[in-house]
C-alpha cells in the first residue's frame, strides 16, 4: 500500500495527493493526519487534490471525515485544487462534502487558514 506523505510548513500540515488512491491509503492518511495534528499542534491542514482525477463516495467521505477529525483537534482542513470535472461529477453523484472548506489553490488555501486563525485570535487570544 502506498502512503501519502504529510509535510509540515510552519504550523500548517500539507498533504499533496499524487497517487491514485486505494481505500487503505485513504484510511491510513486519516490516521496519519490525526496523529500529526496532535504531535505538531498544527492549526491548519491543506489537502491538495490538484492531481486527483476522480473523487468517488469513499474518497469524498474521507475528506469530510478528515475535516471533522482535525476540527475536533483544533485544526481547520482546507481542500485545494479541485478540478472542474471532479466538482461537476461530485455534485451529480450527490456528494456535498459537507463541512469541508475549499479554496482554488494552495496560495488561497493558506490565505484562508490565516484568515480563519486571525478571526479565532480576535475572539480568544492565545
Amino acid at each position: 500500500m502506498d502512503r501519502v506523505p504529510v509535510l509540515k510548513l510552519g504550523d500548517i500540515l500539507i498533504v499533496s495527493i499524487q497517487i491514485d488512491l486505494q481505500d487503505q491509503s485513504v484510511l491510513a492518511l486519516q490516521e496519519d493526519l490525526a496523529d500529526k495534528v496532535v504531535q505538531t499542534g498544527a492549526r491548519g491542514v491543506i489537502i491538495d487534490i490538484t492531481a486527483v482525477e476522480i473523487i468517488d463516495s469513499f474518497i469524498g467521505r474521507m475528506l469530510s471525515t478528515i475535516a471533522s477529525i482535525t476540527r475536533l483537534l483544533d485544526a481547520e482542513t482546507v481542500v485545494v485544487g479541485m478540478r472542474p470535472a471532479v466538482a461537476i461529477t461530485l455534485v451529480e453523484l450527490g456528494l456535498s462534502l459537507g463541512g469541508v472548506r475549499t479554496a482554488l489553490n494552495l496560495e488561497k488555501g493558506v490565505a484562508l487558514l490565516n484568515h480563519l486563525d486571525g478571526a479565532r485570535l480576535a475572539v480568544a487570544p492565545r
Partner: peptide
C-alpha cells in the same frame, strides 16, 4: 467531464 463521470461510476460499482 464524461470520462470523469464514468470513471467515478466504475469506482463505485467495482467497490
Amino acid at each position: 467531464v464524461d470520462q470523469t463521470k464514468i470513471v467515478t461510476a466504475a469506482s463505485e460499482l467495482a467497490r
